[in-house]
């Protein structure tokens, strides 16, 4: 490609794309080694070509590009052999065709990020159906694949204004199915990372749809067994929401208290960490509304027989801002609030 004269470049590009639309069987690792190497080299050329050349992304190439990408990435994901697969403990099954797949994803990313990329042309091919299949790939067990998908979907969301509502809706469906039906989806953390950047960019005042997402999806997500895998991303999304609209604080805190884990101390420690992140950015006016139910729970945690839970709850007292919030509300507090804080004293004793 790099030696071809400009006049022949587009034809050659087309041929290379068609050549790379042949999918190889990597489960049989000795089959077709020559063919696999030819495709790998061709993919490398395509990545280089799109990354370095300007003015080559002419309209007729778009369908060929999307076809090659689709043929390679859209596939039925292998069922997880071990139904008891514990993402925390077990090593994930890596994608055998990664030597090709990685280059296809790399090419797709360079294509999206090319200065010549035109969403107005691409939207004929990157449509709702395409995006839905892309989202289904997030269930891949291969973390390398999910990392590429995350960056790609982030770019697609950014560049295709017309697809944004659809993408949010489909993410909603994936999360709801994950919470209430399957409790199995490998890409929850990656999707939450994208959503963190979307929430961060929300215009004010927040649309009702977005608040519904917080209430109906983000808060119930705390109840899922595999919370530890995506809790950091989930907590970040929640805090982003509160920084956008502090009036949601009471709803979030009461939601977390409603889903407070009763039998899983690891989750309790995570939620205490999230509570502290929220308290770090809380408005004093919001703190007053939630301090009583919140500190009832904190008092229970202090008295927890599990030392890590008790320790994490006591750690709140290492946070000067929380201390100042509590102090401000001790003295002039109305009668019933003064009863909330002494309960802490009992727990501390």
């Amino acid at each position: 490609l790099k030696d071809a004269p400009v006049s022949e470049l587009h034809d050659l590009l087309c041929k290379k794309l068609q050549q790379c639309s042949i999918v190889f069987d990597f489960l049989d690792c000795v089959a077709d080694l020559k063919g696999k190497e030819i495709k790998r080299a061709a993919l490398n050329e395509l990545v280089e070509c799109v990354a370095t050349n300007r003015g080559i992304l002419i309209e007729p190439l778009y369908p060929e590009i999307i076809k090659m990408i689709s043929v390679n990435i859209f596939r039925i994901l292998p069922p997880s052999e071990n139904p008891e697969f514990d993402p925390e403990e077990d090593e994930p099954n890596l994608e055998p065709s990664w030597p090709h797949l990685q280059l296809v994803y790399e090419f797709f990313l360079r294509f999206l990020e090319s200065p010549d990329f035109q969403p107005s042309v691409a939207k004929r091919y990157i449509d709702q159906k395409f995006v839905l299949m892309l989202l289904e790939l997030f269930d891949s067990e291969d973390p390398r694949e999910r990392e590429y998908l995350k960056t790609i979907l982030h770019r697609v969301y950014g560049k295709f204004l017309g697809l944004r509502a659809y993408i949010r809706k489909q993410c909603n469906n994936i999360f709801l199915r994950f919470i209430y039906e399957t409790e199995h989806f490998n890409g929850v953390a990656e999707l939450l990372e994208i959503l963190g950047s979307i929430i961060n960019g929300f215009a004010l005042p927040l649309k009702a749809e977005h608040k519904q997402f917080l209430v109906r999806v983000l808060i119930p997500l705390h109840s899922v067994k595999s919370l530890s895998i995506f809790h950091a991303q989930l907590a970040y999304c929640v805090v982003q929401f509160l920084e956008k609209d502090a009036t949601l604080t009471e709803h979030v805190i009461r939601g977390l208290l409603k889903y407070w884990p009763k039998t899983c101390t690891q989750k309790e420690v995570m939620l205490l960490g999230e509570i502290e992140e929220i308290l770090d950015v809380i408005e004093p006016s919001q703190f007053v509304k939630i301090q009583e139910p919140l500190f009832k729970q904190v008092a229970r945690c202090i008295a927890s027989p599990h030392f890590q839970v008790a320790e994490r709850a006591l750690y709140f007292w290492n946070n000067e801002y929380i201390l100042s919030l509590v102090e401000d509300n001790c003295h002039g507090a109305p009668y019933h609030l003064r009863h909330a804080l002494p309960r802490l004293q009992g727990a501390l004793e």
Binding site: E113, P119, K150, H154, R155, Y157, G158, K159, L161, E193, I194, G196, S197, I198, N200, G201, F202, A203, A232, Q233, Y236, V239, Q240, E243, E277, D280, V281, I282, E283, P284, E320, Y321, S324
Partner: peptide, 30 residues
């Protein structure tokens, strides 16, 4: 002496995985 009160964090620190924000109103030139 009046203890200098720690103010609430102006903005939560972005974790390592934070991605560039995508503004709702306009097309992102990423």
């Amino acid at each position: 002496p009046q203890k200098k009160k720690k103010q609430k964090l102006p903005k939560s620190p972005a974790p390592h995985f934070a991605m560039p924000p995508i503004h709702e109103d306009n097309l992102e030139k990423i």
